[in-house]
Amino acid sequence: MLRLFYRSVLRAHPVYFRRRFAEEMLSIFDQAETPIAAAELVLDGVVSLFRQRVFRPEFGEEPRVEMPADGAPLFSTFESPRPGTGALIYGALLSLLVLNGICWTMGYAWNHPSFVWIQQPVIRPPAAWHKKPPDTPGGSAVPEQPLFTDEGRVLLVFNSGASHTSDPGTAPPTTAKQAMPGVAPRADSALDLRPDVLPSYVGRYRVDAGKSDVKVTVEGEQLRIDAGQFKSRLVPVSENQFVAADVADCQIEFARGSSGAVDRLEIHKDGHRITALRQ
């Protein structure tokens, strides 16, 4: 242990001194017969380190080689061009620290509410898709169909109630939604929920960071969400899972506590999850 510490002290000496004398000093340390003698040598090494670092700056570097007087340029160095083992270890540690710092900063930014609330462009399907199908006279609903298929993932079109009208020009924008992870959304927006379900979700929820509130209200037979940065109707895909009809790629999930009461909601948006606790 003492030898390891003594080696560390020697390694901390200026390069020139270390290269010339460190091995010999370690050799002398190995001659120490008692622990007390070894401890004295360690103390001597610490004093030497202080002396060399503070009072011997002139010996910190290799002495310059005398240049020949014939005018011919001479390029020579005593230093090896290869980095030393210590430099490689310190470099690796420094790289890890910097990488960790960058990852931590990016993770903090991704989880910050102000980052999540960035509005995404709403994808609107072509107007032709709103045309009534020929076999549904006076068609009251546009058939739900897969919009894109990407390796088994189905992107569904959720139509708002207004899109049931026969005039596509007055139809509100229809939004393409991606399925919530682990959720199999039902394509029909007219999911029948028990009458007492929607009121149980109404209330004010506070985001984890406490910087913004999310307000859930009910209008008629539909929930509405007001998150400050966006407002939207909520279309049920299951009893406790909803899709924000007016915002792209945004799903809401309500969760109940042990008492059975709704105590929080989770907003899934752009692959991130924001939890808000009920106030």
């Binding site: 001194f17 010339r20 004398f21 010999e24 000093m25 050799s27 002398i28 340390f29 001659q31 004295e40 040598l41 001597d44 090494g45 004093v47 030497s48 380190l49 002396r51 060399q52 011997r56």
Partner: peptide, 27 residues
């Protein structure tokens, strides 16, 4: 002499009164 030999020789010359550590020696 080598460094350790110098330290021992100094100790012998001074009859143990002057003890030279490796740090002082190599400085």
């Amino acid at each position: 002499l080598h460094g350790y030999g110098i330290m021992q020789e100094v100790q012998r010359q001074s009859e143990g009164k002057y003890k030279l550590g490796p740090g002082t020696l190599y400085d």
